[in-house]
C-alpha cells in the first residue's frame, strides 16, 4: 500500500465517500425512494442527487481554488448549501 502514497486527509475523504454510499444504500433498502422531476426537468432518485451534489462540489472546489485565496472551508460551506439545494429541489 506504500506505493499508493496514502495520507490522513485523502484517506478520510475516501472513507467519507464510502460511508456516504453505504448510508445511501441502506437508506434505499429501508425507505425505497421514487423518482421525481425537479427544477432541472430530469427524473432523479436519491443516488442521482448525491452524484450531482458530489460532481458539483468538485467544480465548486476547483472554482474556489482558481478564483480566491481564501480558506477551502469556504468552498465546503458552499458545497453543503449546494447539496442541500440539489436534494431539496432537483
Amino acid at each position: 500500500m506504500e506505493w499508493m502514497a496514502w495520507t490522513l486527509p485523502t484517506a478520510l475523504f475516501f472513507v467519507t465517500i464510502a460511508l456516504t454510499l453505504a448510508g445511501m444504500s441502506l437508506l434505499h433498502l429501508k425507505y425505497p425512494g421514487t423518482p421525481r422531476t425537479g427544477i432541472l426537468g430530469i427524473e432523479t432518485m436519491r443516488g442521482d442527487r448525491l452524484f450531482i451534489s458530489l460532481l458539483g462540489s468538485g467544480f465548486i472546489n476547483l472554482a474556489w481554488i482558481g478564483l480566491t485565496d481564501a480558506s477551502q472551508y469556504g468552498a465546503l460551506v458552499i458545497c453543503g448549501l449546494f447539496a442541500f439545494c440539489v436534494f431539496r429541489w432537483v
Binding site: E2, W3, M4, A5, W6, T7, T10, F14
Partner: peptide, 23 residues
C-alpha cells in the same frame, strides 16, 4: 483513481518518497 487523488496532493522526487503540498 485513489492513487491519483493521493498523488495530486503531494510532491515526489522519486524513490517512492512523497511530501504533502496540499492544494
Amino acid at each position: 483513481m485513489m492513487t491519483v487523488v493521493n498523488y495530486s496532493f503531494q510532491d515526489s522526487f522519486g524513490g517512492n518518497e512523497f511530501f504533502w503540498v496540499g492544494l
